[in-house]
Design a protein around this nucleic acid. Sequence first.
DNA 1: CCTTTGTCTACTAAGTCTATTAACATAGTA
DNA 2: TACTATGTTAATAGACTTAGTAGACAAAGG
Lengths: 146, 146
Amino acid sequence: MRITYKGDYAMKALLDLSIHYELGVSTINDIAKRIDAPVKFLEQVLLDLKKGGFVESRRGNVGGYQLAKDPAKITLGQVVRYIEGPIEPISCVEKNYAKCIDLGCCLFREIWQKVADATSGIIDNISFSDLANKYNAKKEVFAYSI
Amino acid sequence: MRITYKGDYAMKALLDLSIHYELGVSTINDIAKRIDAPVKFLEQVLLDLKKGGFVESRRGNVGGYQLAKDPAKITLGQVVRYIEGPIEPISCVEKNYAKCIDLGCCLFREIWQKVADATSGIIDNISFSDLANKYNAKKEVFAYSI
DNA sequence: CCTTTGTCTACTAAGTCTATTAACATAGTA
DNA sequence: TACTATGTTAATAGACTTAGTAGACAAAGG
């Protein structure tokens, strides 16, 4: 697995919308400013997230984006898989071979499967409400430290 | 982390040389046939592995490649890091920030660090002698099943 | 010498990543 | 209705990476 800028922006945008959940829609411009992303690129990312059912949008003068569901029901794993594709580090792992012809390939495959499982164990157990809570906690600590 | 074909060939070549350890050198052509890799591409990979100190070579009529050290002293992690670069899935993790300005970034960074640690825990504890042993064990089972 | 091998440099075709541009659709407001 | 602010969509471009390919060169042995 690797995280591209697209994925990075997608996760930050969803965290931003999680923090602003129930405060109505946010415009692309506002989100872009808050997470420091190029506006036109963020457009594509948000559109993609909309297709994936993570966010919903409203056009027009008071338009914008908001989460399509409760942030507690969106996991980091769902987003990463949707934006970046399978988390397995090698293509061989992705295919569910009944039997592996190449013994060497089969050997490594087991290892990458373990790596993928370990990764899943982490990112599938983190929701965006967890992240929003952590963010707010950090913000408080940060505010006190000034 | 992701594994490219280059990394895939590198690992398979090292496994192949581990299996043939103490049997003298193998030519690029032989290795390529055994692991099913393009000869000229494997050339570059082996040259790279030589620069990394994993293999050594002999030119000429009886030339070829062999492991530069005991397969028990080569871990999968070493090879992956050398060929593919840092295993952290995002650039932010790679830099050792004293303090993170962007709270959101910092939040995700912790997660990718966890993922990287979990991955390291797996691949840093597998040596090529482990792999060679597993390979031979599998080969026996495979032979019996025919 | 000749053959067989590794060494090295350069090149390429294809794909991915990170945007940018511009035309268009929609919803609210004056 | 006209205007403006917003989201929608398709196309494109430059930089970079990937996965090879080609060919000249160097060394070792017979």
